[in-house]
Structures are given as structure tokens and as C-alpha cells.
Amino acid sequence: MISIRTAEVSDAAALRAIYEPYVVKTAITFDFDVPSEADFAQKIASVQERHPFLVAESEGKVIGYAYASTYYDKSAYDWTAELTIYMDENKRGLRLGSVLYDMLEEELIKRNFKNFVACISLPNDASIAFHEKRGYEQVAHFKKVGYKFDKWHDIVWLQKSLVEE
């Protein structure tokens, strides 16, 4: 059984363990070094000052996390949040990320956010497909802006807007 709950600072080690393979094996994140457990604890605390930070658990073990953060630190952007999700690499493809994202988006809506954005480094067809199924559309493509593993990588921004026209 999967449960979704608010992240706690005590989850820092589990979140770090989930994130580590993405840092050392992929260009999904542009981090070169795995943040420390203390860095994760600080991230949890700072994110939760304004945004939701959720974890997915199965049998008492954290298997994924998702959080929202400030898109851009200007008051006019206060209704826009950048969303991030990471799943245990052995739990990807089981639709658990969809459950986690559903709850994250629901919490953001309760907090009156109107625009959700996601920055995705390329190549990452799985993340793009995941977001497009959820109604996100690509709104920007920046070429060769990240350099990792001796290669330049593009990023794309996807957006889901709840603003009525």
C-alpha cells in the first residue's frame, strides 16, 4: 500500500538515497555532487515555508518525493510554482509518481497557485511524456545550457496553467 504524506526533516537520508543515482548516473539533474543529508534537511525546511513537500511511502519506506518551489523570486510570480519529482529508480513506471504529483497539484491549488512549471533536461522522454499526460505543454526550449558528463544538454520548460482566459 502506498501512502503520501508531508516530508519531515527526518526523511533527509531517504531522499538523498533516492536522488543519488540521478546525480551520479544521469543528466536529469545538473548537480555534479550529491547533496549531503544536512542539505536535504535544509531543503525540506526551506521549501515548506511556502510550498508543499511530499513523500510517497510503501511498507514504511520512502520510495519517492515531490515538491514545489518558487519559480522566480518576484511578487508577480507568486501564483506560479516549479514542480520537482524523483522516484526510487526501482519504482519508476508503476504510476506511483502520478499519485504523488496528483496530491502535490491538489495542495498547490488549495494554496491558490495557478501555474505549474517543470524544467526538464534532455534527453528525458519519460519525464516529458509523464508531464504531457498530465496536461503540461512545452513552452520553452533552451539549447546547450547545461554541461554534464562531457556533453552539452538542452532543457525544456513545460507548463500547466489553471488561469481562465
Rank of each mutant, 00 (worst) to 15 (best):
K151G: 09
I28T: 07
S3C: 11
A81F: 00
A12Y: 01
K74C: 12
V62F: 07
A66Q: 00
V34K: 08
L83I: 15
P52I: 00
R16N: 10
A14S: 12
Y101S: 04
S75N: 15
R111I: 04
K74A: 13
Y86D: 00
Y19C: 07
V55L: 02
L100V: 06
Q138F: 06
L162C: 09
F40W: 12
E37V: 15
K160V: 07
T6R: 13
F142A: 10
I63M: 03
V99Y: 09
E164D: 11
A38H: 10
I4T: 07
I28D: 02
K61F: 00
A27T: 05
F130Y: 05
L94Q: 15
Y22M: 07
Y71E: 02
E89S: 15
N90K: 12
L104M: 04
A45H: 09
A129E: 11
R92K: 15
F30Q: 02
F30N: 05
G93E: 03
A41Q: 04
S3V: 13
I4Y: 08
G60Y: 06
W157H: 10
F142I: 04
A38K: 13
L54R: 09
W152P: 06
S98C: 08
V62H: 06
A81L: 02
L96K: 11
A41F: 01
A13C: 10
K74D: 00
A14G: 07
S46H: 13
E8F: 03
R16A: 09
R5H: 08
I4D: 03
S127D: 02
Y22A: 06
S121Q: 04
I109M: 11
A12V: 03
A76T: 10
T80E: 01
E59V: 09
K160R: 15
E137R: 12
I28E: 00
V23D: 02
E57W: 05
S36G: 10
G97S: 05
V117C: 05
K148D: 01
K61N: 12
V24Q: 10
Y136T: 05
G97I: 01
A56C: 07
V9C: 06
W79E: 04
L158W: 01
D78V: 13
K143D: 03
K110A: 13
I4V: 14
D154P: 03
V23I: 14
K151D: 05
P52D: 00
Y72G: 08
F113Q: 03
P52V: 01
F30W: 08
K61P: 01
Y77G: 09
V34W: 06
F40M: 11
P35C: 04
V156C: 08
K25D: 11
I128R: 12
N115K: 14
L54M: 08
Y77P: 05
I4S: 11
S98L: 07
D154F: 03
L83K: 02
L100D: 00
T29V: 07
F40H: 06
